[in-house]
Design a protein around this nucleic acid. Structure first.
Lengths: 189, 189
DNA sequence: GATCATACGTGACGTCTCGTCTCGTTCCTG
DNA sequence: CAGGAACGAGACGAGACGTCACGTATGATC
């Protein structure tokens, strides 16, 4: 198998076309042409368009940045740092379209769906950071860590799907509310 | 314009095909055939497949139930009632596929995206109920009501996209955590 | 009741992409 | 230096796209 060069060219072309044209306008023939590769070479190694995207996703080729989360201060600060990094991508030109395309791919393809959270850094980074916070007593011991990760990512996705301008302040507010220490929220009716 | 009969047949066929085959296998020609209608009649009134779905969505034709939320007790109970109703649909055969298809449609089409929350009852029902709770002092005055709605819906969507078995207990836990009265969570480090 | 505009169903058009299938060609292995 | 695997190229049938032209049905106007 000599695939090394072909594999690289195919994945690079896939990522570029995905960013450029979105998921539903992504064609195997377009990828093959850009990669300078025969269609059969793609079909030989990947069973579907989705598998191709899933591999780009786990290789971190779809987003221009990595979504590592720092462990350098209060959870809230660290999570806001991560959030700002995500929002920066969303606000860049084509950024929300990119996320929508990724969601479309995740909805239509099992392989992509199973790695969606992971690709945005929720699985490893956010989850890990929140677990640390629980252990450090920054969050209640019964905080449902993975559900909180899904909720934050989900809120971002719902917002992107709604075609609103990404409401950065709203999301920061949400995170602050979710991660608030007990008994600190503004009271009264 | 005589569309009344044709319109009804087209929307009914669209909803049925959508539930049956999913969004990406939904074809205009298939809808036309099932509706006993010419393709042109569809293209005359709807600009795209997405517009068709959006209309089915706002007509409540895509889900077999309505997602009204009761106002009959503590917020938490009422929201859990709504959640159970949503989960019942997700657990029914083809239910999570249906949600994924809807998300795919929302990701690819503006019109569907703008009415997604609304179709699951988040926009009117959940949002309204949470606002009432804030006003009644059940939730902190600074609770970001619409963000919470997005977060809950988002968590459901992320879970469905991940192809896990819908984790009903996890979602209930999330809702309980999100809507917990101040200072009630299990403490200690 | 004849006329006219318009919505209808049918079905063919050219285009696109799919996934499969040959072709030669290249290049690694033994 | 052979043999074979992986390659680039691209033809192929299938099927859906969105548009178009035709002839029929319907409902309003005079």
């Amino acid at each position: 198998m000599r695939s090394a060069a072909a594999r690289e060219a195919i994945l690079a072309a896939t990522a570029r076309q995905f960013q450029l044209r979105g998921y539903d306008n992504l064609t195997i023939e377009g990828i093959a042409k850009e990669a300078g590769v025969g269609k059969q070479t793609i079909y030989r190694w990947w069973p579907s368009r989705g598998a191709l995207i899933a591999e780009c996703l786990t290789d971190g080729r779809l987003f221009p940045v990595d979504f590592d989360i720092p462990v350098s201060g209060p959870v809230l600060d660290d999570v806001e740092t991560w959030l700002d990094r995500v929002l920066a991508v969303l606000h860049s030109p084509g950024g929300s379209g990119l996320l929508r395309s990724l969601v479309a791919a995740a909805a239509e393809d099992d392989a992509v769906g199973q790695h969606l959270s992971e690709g945005i850094g929720v699985e490893q980074s956010l989850h890990t950071r929140l677990t640390l916070a629980v252990r450090a007593g920054e969050l209640p011991a019964d905080a449902p860590v993975d559900q909180l990760g899904s909720a934050i990512l989900g809120a971002i996705i719902v917002q992107a799907l709604g075609r609103e301008e990404a409401d950065a302040e709203g999301l920061r507010e949400l995170v602050r509310f979710l991660l608030r220490p007990d008994g600190q929220a503004g009271s009264s009716a």
